[in-house]
């Protein structure tokens, strides 16, 4: 089986749940306490995914980047060499959705090869606090030319599916 590894960045405003999504996917755990990420935390997880003609053992290098604006300057240095990004917004904070367009622009400026994008609209479990409609999500996802998933790092809803779909996109299938 062919083995490849890809660098994937998780991008989005602070407190949208980037770290929680990675922890749910890699370790299958969730912690309620919000802990701001500074800098970058790299985690990896290997998945087997169908590639062109054969199965591929894909190691996802997940770059969980600080979302706070204080890290805007250094963020560019973390984006180099990325193959794509999971763009994360928080369904309870509308402004986090519009930010995704800026993050995608920044990524493509630094890493023009990072054309694979996927949108994770997170915190689906906070039903009564949701403030972003499906239409708004789809509009942004269409502009980014990215598949859209409504996820919950807390319950695990669609997290595995999202990363597996993204894995297929990275190896050239299911994009």
């Amino acid at each position: 089986m062919k083995e490849i590894s890809k660098k994937v960045c998780l991008l989005g405003d602070f407190a949208v749940g980037k770290t929680s999504l990675v922890r749910r996917f890699v370790l299958n755990i969730f912690e309620d306490r919000y802990l701001s990420t500074i800098g970058v935390k790299v985690s990896r997880k290997t998945v087997v995914t169908p590639g062109p003609g054969d199965l591929i053992e894909l190691t996802l290098m997940l770059w969980d980047l600080a979302g706070s604006e204080e890290f805007d300057q250094v963020r560019a240095s973390y984006l180099r060499g990325a193959s794509g990004a999971v763009l994360v917004c928080d369904l309870t904070r509308p402004e986090t959705l519009t930010s995704l367009l800026t993050y995608a622009d920044d990524l493509l400026r630094v890493s023009p090869q990072a054309t694979r994008l996927i949108v994770a609209a997170n915190k689906l479990d906070l039903t009564d606090q949701r403030r972003i409609s499906q239409d708004e999500l789809e509009r942004v996802a269409t502009r980014l030319n990215a598949p859209l998933y409504l996820t919950s790092a807390r319950t695990g809803d669609e997290v595995e599916t999202l990363f597996r779909h993204f894995g297929q996109m990275l190896v050239g299938e299911g994009g």
Binding site: V40, V42, G81
Partner: peptide, 29 residues
């Protein structure tokens, strides 16, 4: 330093003497 995977072109540039240094700050471990 698995954090450096994907940054091979930058590392090679340092090795080739084309860049004086390469840094990756605030890496969480």
């Amino acid at each position: 330093a698995p954090e450096l995977i994907g940054l091979e072109p930058d590392i090679e540039a340092v090795l080739a003497g084309q860049r004086p240094r390469f840094t990756l700050d605030w890496v969480n471990r």
